[in-house]
């Protein structure tokens, strides 16, 4: 187990170094920060002074090592657009994105798993067929379109829910949460559904396919032959085996959800990291973009690690193979 975790940690570090390198190269390839930061009438001397102050005159690898060193300490410099430390900006925006992503993932699981199980068990009912067709539409419909439809129906026509923003938030330490106020929760509904749509359809189809596969196995047939109740067979035996791959995909999806929140956040003007990133791109605000990339990379790596360990806990066969315990 420990060897396994260490190996995955090492892989994670390597991935983060690569992500760091990409983020760092942004500084060199996307515009010249000096000309962006200084007024057009600045002299060459002003430019050189600025260059020196920013450490841009040093060789590439020195700059990179400095960058990584700062990044590890959470120091990504000052936002060119807002003039405030990038890390402060991200910490301010992080809760909004994580709450949105978490809610979307929950919708994905809480709707996707039951619907997937239902469509697998009642394979031939017209409800299942209707759900499958809907999911197909859901997969092929672009995210922003779903968001715009929802806004049109629930905010513009019915006027039930707000169409943008996060509503009122409550501060708990550094974390500002929208879960505790009525307007916060109301504002969360439409963006969370928009962002959760894809995970729902994905998880549902995955659960269905896996469940159908598992229901065909010998051990399910034998469980039935033993006279176990349908509930015990379908949920105790079949679903548990189905969940092994579902855990992996859902976990990996969570990273995707956070990354793709960019679009939803833009549509709903949701004050999260995604929106910050989009605005940073428009302004070529490299420090914010670089920091965002590194953070998303880190989130992916951490999620991967957690998913692997969950997988490991659920499947006793992996425990035996990797941990070398208890096999006979």
């Amino acid at each position: 187990m420990i060897a396994f975790v260490l190996r995955r940690l090492l892989q994670g570090v390597i991935v983060m170094l690569v992500v760091g390198l990409i983020a760092f190269s942004l500084f060199n390839f996307v515009g010249d920060p000096v000309s962006l930061m200084l007024p057009p009438e600045a002299t060459q001397a002003d430019r050189d002074a600025m260059r020196q102050a920013l450490g841009l005159d040093k060789p590439f690898y020195v700059q990179f090592v400095t960058f990584i060193g700062n990044a590890v300490q959470g120091n990504f410099g000052i936002s060119l657009r807002l003039g405030r430390p990038v890390s402060t900006l991200l910490v301010e925006r992080l809760p909004a994105t994580l709450e949105l992503a978490f809610t979307a993932a929950m919708i994905g699981l809480l709707v996707g798993i039951p619907v997937g199980v239902y469509t697998a068990l009642k394979r031939d009912s017209w409800v299942s067929r209707a759900l499958l067709t809907t999911s197909l539409v859901g997969v092929s419909l672009p995210n922003f379109l779903i968001g715009i439809f929802l806004i049109l129906i629930f905010a513009v026509w019915l006027g039930w829910l707000p169409s943008f923003g996060r509503g009122d938030t409550v501060k708990i330490g550094l974390w500002s949460t929208g879960f505790l106020t009525k307007s916060g929760l109301k504002s969360l509904i439409l963006p969370a559904i928009t962002l959760g749509f894809f995970p729902v359809t994905l998880i549902m189809r995955l659960v269905r396919a896996e469940m159908l596969e598992v229901l065909r196995t010998d051990y399910i047939k034998f469980a039935r032959a033993r006279g176990l109740s349908d509930r015990a067979v379908n949920f105790g035996h079949a679903l548990k085996n189905t969940l092994v791959p579902v855990i992996t995909i859902t976990g990996l999806q969570l990273g995707g959800i956070i990354a793709f929140a960019i679009i939803t956040e833009t549509v709903f003007q949701w004050p999260g990291m995604g929106l910050l990133f989009v605005q940073a791109v428009q302004f070529a605000d490299i420090p914010v973009m670089a920091a965002y990339l590194c953070l998303i990379g880190l989130i992916f790596v951490v999620i991967n690690l957690v998913v692997d360990m969950l997988y490991y806990l659920v499947d006793p066969r992996l425990r035996a193979e990797r941990g070398g315990s208890g096999g006979h």
Binding site: R226, G227, D230, H237, N241
Partner: peptide
């Protein structure tokens, strides 16, 4: 269902796959 396992038991061909691995 109540008869299966209680009054009529069954054994299938492949023991390697008859048991739930989890």
């Amino acid at each position: 269902r109540k008869i299966r396992g209680r009054r009529i038991g069954a054994i299938f061909q492949d023991p390697l796959t008859s048991l739930n691995p989890l």
